[in-house]
Amino acid sequence: MPAITEVWKVLFKRPFTNRFPAKYAPRSVHGFVRRVQAGKAKIAPPVPTPPNFRGKINYEVDKCIGCGLCIRVCPTKAIVWRTVEVEQGEKKVAKKKVKIFVSRCCFCSQCVDICPKDCLSMSDEFLLANEDKLANELIVL
């Protein structure tokens, strides 16, 4: 029975667990976050993301021509139309742009592939948990 010797060997090994964000769950997550912000506590770093990781979406609104291809391929209907008033010379023109609900996004990056103007890209940000699915940081404009 190989486990008999194995367990004693492992006992003296460093635990495999990655201690993210802290070794033990903090009593209050909010308190922990506040302490981290105040510099009183430190977050144990997460496992680094590899290059070309598919994280939170970035949107460069100025490059967008409003073709709507991303809306057509988005599997989760996370991208919707929105109209933006842009000043063009004297008069204001309504331009079609999009709005992305990150809390609906499934991070497939299909919209990034289809975008003809390359105005969408995936960042490596993945700490997106929030109590409010419509929080400002979860809507990309």
């Binding site: 492992v10 006992l11 635990p15 033990y24």
Partner: peptide, 13 residues
């Protein structure tokens, strides 16, 4: 704690 360490984990306080 010890059994967690034997299982390659951190374990509870």
């Amino acid at each position: 704690k010890l059994s967690a360490r034997m299982q390659w984990r951190i374990g509870p306080p």
